[in-house]
Amino acid sequence: MSLLDYFRTSKTSSASVAKERLQILVAHERSSRNQPSYLPQLQKELLEVIRKYVNVEQDAISVNFEQDETQETLELNIVLPDYHPKNT
Protein backbone atom coordinates (compact mmCIF):
# COMPACT_ATOMS: atom_id res chain seq x y z
CA MET A 1 0.00 0.00 0.00
CA SER A 2 1.41 3.36 -0.95
CA LEU A 3 1.55 6.30 1.38
CA LEU A 4 -1.16 7.97 -0.66
CA ASP A 5 -3.45 4.99 -0.26
CA TYR A 6 -2.83 5.11 3.46
CA PHE A 7 -4.14 8.64 3.73
CA ARG A 8 -7.04 7.84 1.48
CA THR A 9 -8.27 4.91 3.53
CA SER A 10 -7.63 6.39 6.94
CA LYS A 11 -11.04 8.02 6.94
CA THR A 12 -14.19 5.94 6.58
CA SER A 13 -14.83 5.55 2.88
CA SER A 14 -18.20 6.46 1.45
CA ALA A 15 -18.47 2.94 0.01
CA SER A 16 -18.26 1.35 3.45
CA VAL A 17 -20.94 3.71 4.74
CA ALA A 18 -23.07 2.70 1.75
CA LYS A 19 -22.54 -0.97 2.46
CA GLU A 20 -23.50 -0.64 6.10
CA ARG A 21 -26.68 1.28 5.29
CA LEU A 22 -27.63 -1.25 2.64
CA GLN A 23 -27.08 -4.22 4.92
CA ILE A 24 -29.45 -2.81 7.52
CA LEU A 25 -32.07 -1.75 5.00
CA VAL A 26 -32.05 -4.93 2.98
CA ALA A 27 -32.28 -7.12 6.09
CA HIS A 28 -35.27 -5.09 7.23
CA GLU A 29 -37.00 -5.20 3.86
CA ARG A 30 -36.43 -8.92 3.50
CA SER A 31 -38.00 -9.68 6.83
CA SER A 32 -41.06 -7.58 6.10
CA ARG A 33 -41.36 -9.22 2.67
CA ASN A 34 -42.09 -12.61 4.19
CA GLN A 35 -44.68 -11.31 6.56
CA PRO A 36 -48.22 -12.53 6.20
CA SER A 37 -50.45 -9.98 4.51
CA TYR A 38 -52.85 -9.74 7.44
CA LEU A 39 -50.20 -8.18 9.65
CA PRO A 40 -51.01 -4.47 9.13
CA GLN A 41 -54.71 -5.08 9.77
CA LEU A 42 -53.92 -7.15 12.84
CA GLN A 43 -51.74 -4.36 14.14
CA LYS A 44 -54.47 -1.80 13.56
CA GLU A 45 -57.15 -3.82 15.33
CA LEU A 46 -54.90 -4.69 18.24
CA LEU A 47 -54.16 -1.03 18.69
CA GLU A 48 -57.86 -0.23 18.83
CA VAL A 49 -58.47 -2.85 21.51
CA ILE A 50 -55.53 -1.79 23.61
CA ARG A 51 -56.57 1.83 23.41
CA LYS A 52 -59.86 0.98 25.04
CA TYR A 53 -57.94 0.28 28.20
CA VAL A 54 -54.64 2.12 28.00
CA ASN A 55 -53.93 5.41 26.37
CA VAL A 56 -51.00 4.44 24.17
CA GLU A 57 -49.50 6.26 21.20
CA GLN A 58 -50.13 5.20 17.60
CA ASP A 59 -46.62 3.85 17.28
CA ALA A 60 -46.52 2.23 20.69
CA ILE A 61 -47.29 -1.17 19.32
CA SER A 62 -45.22 -3.30 17.00
CA VAL A 63 -46.00 -6.68 15.57
CA ASN A 64 -43.14 -8.76 14.27
CA PHE A 65 -43.33 -11.93 12.38
CA GLU A 66 -40.36 -14.25 12.25
CA GLN A 67 -39.85 -17.47 10.50
CA ASP A 68 -37.22 -20.15 10.63
CA GLU A 69 -37.16 -23.77 9.51
CA THR A 70 -39.01 -25.10 12.51
CA GLN A 71 -41.40 -22.40 13.63
CA GLU A 72 -43.14 -19.12 13.02
CA THR A 73 -43.24 -16.55 15.79
CA LEU A 74 -45.51 -13.61 16.13
CA GLU A 75 -44.05 -11.11 18.52
CA LEU A 76 -46.22 -8.38 19.95
CA ASN A 77 -44.59 -5.45 21.66
CA ILE A 78 -46.54 -2.73 23.43
CA VAL A 79 -44.82 0.23 24.97
CA LEU A 80 -46.95 1.47 27.85
CA PRO A 81 -46.85 5.15 28.68
CA ASP A 82 -44.73 6.24 31.62
CA TYR A 83 -46.81 5.94 34.69
CA HIS A 84 -46.72 9.05 36.88
CA PRO A 85 -48.61 8.54 40.12
CA LYS A 86 -50.85 11.51 40.63
CA ASN A 87 -50.13 13.75 43.60
CA THR A 88 -52.77 13.39 46.21
Binding site: T9, S13, S14, A15, S16, A18, K19, Q23
Partner: peptide, 13 residues
Protein backbone atom coordinates in the same frame (compact mmCIF):
# COMPACT_ATOMS: atom_id res chain seq x y z
CA UNK B 1 -10.52 4.93 -3.80
CA UNK B 2 -13.39 3.78 -1.59
CA UNK B 3 -15.96 5.76 -3.57
CA UNK B 4 -17.79 2.77 -5.00
CA UNK B 5 -19.16 -0.46 -3.60
CA UNK B 6 -16.91 -3.38 -4.54
CA UNK B 7 -17.98 -6.70 -6.06
CA UNK B 8 -17.55 -8.28 -2.63
CA UNK B 9 -19.65 -5.59 -0.96
CA UNK B 10 -22.52 -6.19 -3.35
CA UNK B 11 -22.13 -9.95 -3.04
CA UNK B 12 -22.19 -9.70 0.77
CA UNK B 13 -25.60 -8.09 0.47
Amino acid sequence: LGDMLSVDDVQDI
